[in-house]
Each structure stands twice: as structure tokens, then as C-alpha cells.
Design a protein around this nucleic acid. Structure first.
Ligand SMILES: [Mn+2]
Ligand SMILES: [Mn+2]
Ligand SMILES: [Mn+2]
Ligand SMILES: [Mn+2]
Lengths: 222, 222
DNA sequence: ATATAATTTTAGGCTAATCTAAAAAATATA
DNA sequence: TATATTTTTTAGATTAGCCTAAAATTATAT
């Protein structure tokens, strides 16, 4: 009954999990292909394999959904990824924009003993350096509530930056240039009709950010 | 000119390096196959590939030798393996017999920045938990001198256990049962003709060990 | 409802890494 | 030296994961 899962399969399951969060049902072949930078035909092959292993339910032409065991593996991979990111930032002094690629490799190391000891060593962190919640060893994850995107905040409101929807290095470096980091207090001053750009106040300084940036900032209203 | 090296190639290079230590020249196809638990025909294929990449010099029917760039990769892989073993023991409190398999995975993570920061984080250790020297980032390794196998020590002599030639869990657990660990002071009392078994004294207690065990204990005479 | 477009699957191939069995070469033995 | 044994290489398959191109299916637009 216990199949072995390799890093390719872990990557597919993680991608499907991530795409399932936006709650349309049945993740499409094309969406997975785009997310993994591969071709739709390759995805179809893999979906048939994962379906045989009982990790996804797959109906031809209608996309896939994770089964509970598939979801558990996805969440465990995410757990490993985020714990390693914490390790890299907290212990090895990497910047938060440098850790994702390395964690993409480390997340595939197979040893639950290692993962759990790492968790303890790091002090059982609840969030990774990008504000993403870390699943526990049972695959339970804290769905952050009371949060929304900065682009959805109402004008005049105050909020705290608690997460980023894009962990790419180029985006994170861009944020740093605007003095934005996790925990920053932000006041939304205005949204301009023309290009949906936003005027915000951070650390007593007024700045302008694009709607593209605001769409990737997860905030908690104060 | 810079080729990418994957984990399969790293494993072959590491095996060739290790087999080169016993200084016969030209590592044989069969020896590599045995060391990697694969078939001679697979080894031949890979040797041709590694030769094309300039990582080994290969003469049909006469085995291979690492080139300097091949040796550098082998030593870097060994460096990563041993640093991760130190991490697992020193930081995550694993026992020395539990770390080898996990390090076999971690040694293939590709990021020199990670390796070097890990080295610093661990306090630039010179030896791994099994007493093996850790190459530096230039691939320089301290050849331990003044050491020999316990089976080669002369009767009556005192020594310190500084390394093990076998890192398997079963061997290391066996050592612990005999109160033997790195740093233990040992006096060789006698060697019995019949089965070449040894009588030793450790921590004021006299014990008997097999020649098989003594062949895997690296000691420094006092 | 039909035609067109988009998506998805299938068919057939490719590469890396492995295998078994057969052939070739080197080594050991008589 | 000639023969037997061992080692190594080659030939031909297999598998996972990927690809392109063509066919099938579903979705959209008149
Ligand atoms: Mn990440
Ligand atoms: Mn992250
Ligand atoms: Mn080891
Ligand atoms: Mn070791």
C-alpha cells in the first residue's frame, strides 16, 4: 500500500495543492503545466500515474483533485520547504529573497525524523520568512484569517504586512527598496483610478506602489 | 565549458575518489560497480560519459582515474556530506550511527553559498562525527598522518580512537556496546594467533574484539 | 444548433540510467 | 605458448519523464 514518492511527484502534488487554493474545483491540466513549466501532455501522463497511486482523483478532460493522501504529501512537502527556509534565514543568515531556490531542493529530502528535529531546532516556527504558515507533522495548516490583499483594503485604513503572494527574488528585493518588510505598518492613502496604483504611508514616508505589487502583499487590517 | 553535474555523477565521482585512496592505479569497473551496487555494464556507460565531460581519464579495459576537475567535484561532495553529518549530530542531536543515509541525500544539494555558510555556522569543523577530515572549499583535505588501524598496532601500545573505516549503523552500534567512541583511550593487550582476535583495555575494563572490528578502527598511537 | 476555438488526450519518440546476455579483451594457469 | 578463467565492453531492452504533432473532446460564439 505504501508507495514511494519521488521529487517529481512531490512537485506535481505541491503544484496541484497550490492551485486548489483558489477554490474552483478540478485543477486543469494546463494550469499545472504552466505552474511547473512543462507541457500539458506531460501533465496528463503524470496525472494517470498519480491517479493509479491514489494520490489524485482524475476524470479525463475535467482536471484533478488531490485525495487525502495526496494532500498529506503535498502539505508535508510544503512543511519541509518552509522549515528549511526558516533555517536558512534564521540560522545561516540568508536574506529572505535568497532562500526559495535552495528550499526547492531541500524540500525533497526524505526523513520525517529529520523534518521533526529541524522543527524543534528552529523552535517550532509557525510561519516561514515570507509569512506563509508552516503545516505541522499531521499536515494541519493554519489558514490565516482576517487577512486580505493590500489591493483590497479600503482607503484610509491601517494594516500590517503579514505575507507575500510572490516569493521571487526580484519581487522581494523590490519590496526592500520601498522599505517594506514583514511587520511593516502601512496606511492606504489613495488608489488612483487611472492605473490602479496606490499611495501608501510606511514608516512615516509616503510612497507610491503599483497595483501589481499591491496584489502580492498580504495584510492584516488593524 | 562548465557542465552541470547531477547526483548520479556525483555519486560515481565520490566512489572513484574513495577507491583511489588505496593506491593501486586505475580504478576498475568492477570495483566501482560493487561500491555503487550496480552492474559493470552500467559503470562502463557512465565512465564514457564522465570521460567526455573531462572528469575522468578512461582507457578501455584499464579502469579510470579522476582528473583534477573530477577530483574537485568528488571532494566537494564529500565536503557537503561530512558538513551535513556534523550538522545532524551537533545541531539536531542525531546519534552518529543515524546520519549517513540522510547525508547521502543532503550531499547533493547544489549551492556553494549554502555549503560555505553551513561550514561557518558549524564553526568550521575539521572532522565529521566519524573522525573523517572535512575538505575545505578549495578541495584541500587534511590527510591524517600518524594514524593506523588498531589491527596494525603493536602489542602493549596505547592509542586513541580517532576514526572508523566503516560508518554503517550496525558497526557503530556495535562499537557503542563495547564502550568505544571517538577519543576513547585503548591499550592493546594481546592478539590471539588462532582467530586474530584482540584483547584490549578501554576505560579500565578489559574486552575482546574481533579482527574484523579492529580492521575498521583508526587510531593514533600515544 | 452549428461552426470555431481552446483544451486535453493520445501516439510516437527521445534521453538518462539502468538491466541481461553475448562478445571481446586481458589475465591466469597448465 | 596454448587454453581456461575473469574482467570488461557492447548490443539490445526497459523505465521514468519529458517532448511534438495529431486526434479527440469540451467550451464559446455566432
Ligand atoms: Mn519558497
Ligand atoms: Mn516561503
Ligand atoms: Mn557518511
Ligand atoms: Mn562520516
Amino acid at each position: 500500500m505504501r508507495h514511494f514518492i519521488n521529487h517529481t511527484e512531490e512537485n506535481y502534488l505541491k503544484a496541484i495543492y497550490s492551485l486548489s487554493q483558489k477554490p474552483n474545483q478540478g485543477v486543469s491540466t494546463n494550469a499545472i503545466a504552466k505552474s511547473l513549466d512543462t507541457k500539458a501532455s506531460s501533465v496528463t501522463d503524470m496525472m494517470q500515474k498519480l491517479a493509479e497511486k491514489g494520490l489524485v482523483s482524475y476524470k479525463k478532460y475535467y482536471g484533478v483533485q488531490l485525495t487525502s493522501s495526496g494532500q498529506l504529501i503535498a502539505l508535508n512537502t510544503i512543511r519541509k520547504h518552509r522549515l528549511w527556509e526558516v533555517f536558512l534565514v534564521d540560522k545561516l543568515s540568508f536574506n529572505w529573497d535568497e532562500v526559495h531556490e535552495i528550499a526547492e531542493q531541500l524540500e525533497h529530502i526524505q526523513s520525517s525524523e529529520l523534518t521533526n528535529r529541524l522543527d524543534i531546532f528552529l523552535g517550532n516556527p509557525k510561519f516561514d520568512p515570507h509569512g506563509d504558515p508552516i503545516p505541522n507533522s499531521q499536515g494541519e495548516i493554519e489558514n490565516y484569517h482576517d487577512t486580505l490583499l493590500l489591493s483590497e483594503l479600503e482607503i484610509g485604513a491601517f494594516c500590517t504586512l503579514v505575507g507575500v503572494a510572490d516569493s521571487s527574488s526580484v519581487f522581494l528585493k523590490h519590496l526592500e527598496k520601498s522599505q517594506l518588510k514583514l511587520g511593516s505598518e502601512i496606511r492606504l492613502i489613495n488608489v488612483f483610478e487611472y492605473d490602479r496604483s496606490l499611495s501608501i504611508e510606511v514608516a512615516n514616508i509616503q510612497r507610491s506602489i503599483s497595483n501589481r505589487v499591491a496584489d502580492n502583499l498580504i495584510v492584516k487590517p488593524l
